[in-house]
Simulated scan of single mutants.
Amino acid sequence: MTRFLVAAAQYPIERLEGWDAYEAKLTRWVDEAAAGGAALAVFPEYGAMELASLDPATMGDLAGSIETVSAQLPRVDALHSALAVRTGMHILAASAPRKDADGRFRNAARLFAPNGKSSVQDKLVMTRFEREQWDIAAGSSLRVFETALGRLAVSICYDSEFPLLARACVEAGAEVLLVPSCTDTLHGYWRVRIGAQARALEGQCYAVHSPTVGDAAWSPAVDENRGAAGVYGPPDRGMPEDGVLVVGAEGTAQWVFAEIDTAHVAELRADGGVLNARHWGEQPGAVALPPVEVVDLR
């Protein structure tokens, strides 16, 4: 499949009454994306932090919130896997802190395929609040996912602001870059959006941006959330002149939908008005790129 519809979530952080409320909310959101015709649904960075509200005793404590959410991940992932199989969609789950064997937490986005397969991309470059307040450790592996929709890569929020990460994925064949984000100011939102659009330009590919939205005063982790979902491409033939395929209304809980055609990525990389992807190595000082693992989810 080269042509498909993608849904990017402007996902609201909400206080949940219990697991059943979370399951109902996620199921409703996934079903809405499926009803809109999406083959791929993208949820934001740290959207899973609303699960901290399942434990009222710790939800007001940052460290306690992180522990609570991490402990829920096996059940959360089982739900996403079941929804992907039932709807026939690929789903990028909202990222969450995952506690690893070394006792450190890492910010993990998990991609679920409708055939039951799944994999994960950890965030690689930590923001100041993750380093200085959350004590989240950096991941180490960069992956590209071979799927029935094409080759997808994930660049979590701040990672999208570092071009060599996306470039390594492009050289490994990535056609669509998924950019889940969580930003508490419009400054942060625009940094990620500009990064996503720049990566689409450089790689002559699509970038799908999904942010958290809304206020959650009860949460010390995700109390303020600003942003708008969008799907971007390179400003070139067959694309909008500004590269913006769709963008949502900032702060509104909603899906935004756009059609992606990975065959058009190949066409532009071969014979676009410019050839950014091909000419990358001609930059003075172009450096060696990090290794990329290709994970087959077909």
Rank of each mutant, 00 (worst) to 15 (best):
D296V: 05
G139H: 02
A198N: 15
A207V: 00
A270L: 11
L178K: 01
P74E: 10
D102P: 09
A270R: 11
A34P: 02
V292F: 02
Q197C: 14
K99E: 15
A221M: 11
E45D: 14
L124D: 01
D135H: 15
F112G: 02
V30Q: 09
V244A: 11
N276D: 13
W255V: 06
T68P: 04
V179G: 05
A71N: 13
M126Q: 14
D271K: 13
A207F: 01
N225Y: 00
C182W: 05
Y46V: 02
F105E: 03
R110M: 13
A286I: 01
V244C: 12
E45P: 01
V120G: 14
L149A: 06
D61H: 08
A221N: 10
G248I: 04
L142S: 02
E241P: 03
V208L: 05
D55S: 11
E293A: 10
K99C: 14
A148Y: 00
S155G: 13
I66R: 04
L111N: 03
S65C: 09
P114I: 01
M239N: 13
A174M: 04
E282I: 10
C182N: 13
S118T: 11
A38I: 08
G248E: 03
E67N: 13
L51I: 02
A263T: 12
A78R: 15
P74D: 13
L73A: 15
W134L: 10
G60R: 14
R128Y: 08
A228R: 03
